[in-house]
Amino acid sequence: MKILVTAKRVEDAESKIRVNPQGTGIVPEGLKYKINPFDEIAVEEGLRLVAKHGGEVVVVSIGGKEVQEQLRHALAMGAHKAVWVNHAGALDQLAIAALLAKVVEAEKPDLAILGKQSIDDDQNQVGQYLAEFLGWGQATFASKVESLESDAEKGKHPGVMLSADGKAVVVVREVDNGLATVECQMPAVVTTDLRLNLPRYASLPGIMKAKSKPIQELTPAGLGVDVTPKVVIQKMVPPPARKAGIKVPDVATLVDKLKNEAKVV
């Protein structure tokens, strides 16, 4: 199998994010950057699938030269090669999906696995746009039937299964009120939810090997994609603050407050 996965560069989930005083962006001081956690799950799933069925994992990132760090990280986890779409400016989900569609056309993977959302934009759109642009089936919010503490997880088994004829993927999706299972003929787009797998750490030999793996550089112009943003952020503001609460010494006081002050019980 050939699997294409994505690796967006985002602020670390533990970072303290604040809007800058001008409302034009976030305060950059003290931020650390990582591969988007959902994309890390996508990389891991790709690696597990090729470990089981054979094949290779191609990782793609779009951004300025700093995104090579995230590509190297994915290569260190075990991805075979990397594609870097070099673009330093703002990008929206339409543009990202259009660029990915071009990369897919060139790479011809059986499966494109993307994170369901990136934890900066929180848009949850690119996989779905990509599937439609390519005319492929989509299985979003891919999960595992077993918990992340199960034997299947410890055995590093993929959560995405192949159909009996090997021509389709069977995916368990996290949806409202339960789990839905769908079968998508390949090629297909899968987007990952949190419980699909626990990504591996990059090993030291992995990191060494990653240094000599190829990163192919592409550009939006070279791919023939107009990336002018259609989602235009006009300003950013902090969310409304909650007023400070109090600590209560015991259950009796809590119950009294809930009954007589907040009047919610």
């Binding site: 994010i17 952020i233 950013m236």
Partner: peptide, 20 residues
């Protein structure tokens, strides 16, 4: 028309325009 929507786990509310 402008849409207010959360980014970064709700740490930021962005005001966005869609130009399509």
């Amino acid at each position: 028309v402008v849409y207010a929507r959360p980014m970064w786990a709700g740490n930021v509310v962005a005001h966005v325009k869609l130009t399509t």
